[in-house]
Amino acid sequence: MDITFKNVSYIYQRNTPFAHKAVDDLSFHIPSGSFVAIIGHTGSGKSTLIQHLNGLAIPSEGEVTIGDFYLTNDKKPKNMKELRSRVGVVFQYPEHQLFEETVEKDIAFGPENFGVSKDEINKRIKDLIPAVGLSEALLERSPFDLSGGQMRRVAIAGVLAVKPEVLVLDEPTAGLDPRGQKEMMEMFYTLHKEQGLTTILVTHSMEDAVKYADHVIILNQGTKYMEGKPEEVFIQKEALHKVQLDVPEMVQFLNLFENKFGKSIPFERQSIKEIAQSIQHIVKGAEKP
């Protein structure tokens, strides 16, 4: 599903002394099937933005279009439930939403609410369990007996079991150890490609954005600050520093390298291996191939 924001503003507690604009005149377009990273500090409007994607927030001004769904201040879609079944949201620390007696029941909770048949749910759970890296032996256990990492996988399975077309991930790796973080991102990337999802990743990690996203949106104080391909956005060191964001470590290194050697290696999202080769050519004084 294509997603379009057109001049969207969102005001909390409108017409009160506490009114405060969380999102301000925001416009962008996300084509179906893309992997978009949204980056910004706490308070930049990220969480308000993602609430618009499944109708938890309705724009105070402007319009949001998600596939055939159309959200404006005076026109709420009647079939909100259908929108929510097609846009899955994995919130920060999703393990906090678990509540059922068994893992199986918790995963089934979402699809049941959206009217998926029992047989179909069982089939989906069977497929999902290995995909999210759990074992079937856990299905009958209480989700509260699992480790933190396993609980998170159960919660994610609960969102995926609805078979959304758009998957919104709000800092899905927060609090995991390095291996857990890597496995989690690889899992989402595989799902993204295999199921042709539109994925929207809210993250603080420039490294993850470079690695997985094909489009980056930088938010600052509720407005769009920058937008573009990762290799275009992440080389703009000064602009990013102005909003207290850093460039990925690889870009930092390439900048320092250029200062020292007077020769630049352009950042093209290449692998560390490729960078090592470019450096070797310069250091050894050989011509570039």
Partner: peptide
């Protein structure tokens, strides 16, 4: 918000349904 995203409806529907919707909120 998380449970609403999973299809729980806190605002409309018969009282009995809405009372049931409180469980996924209260347990967590």
């Amino acid at each position: 918000r998380a449970q609403a995203s999973r299809g729980v409806d806190f605002k409309t529907g018969p009282i009995k349904e809405r009372a049931k919707a409180v469980v996924p909120l209260l347990v967590p």
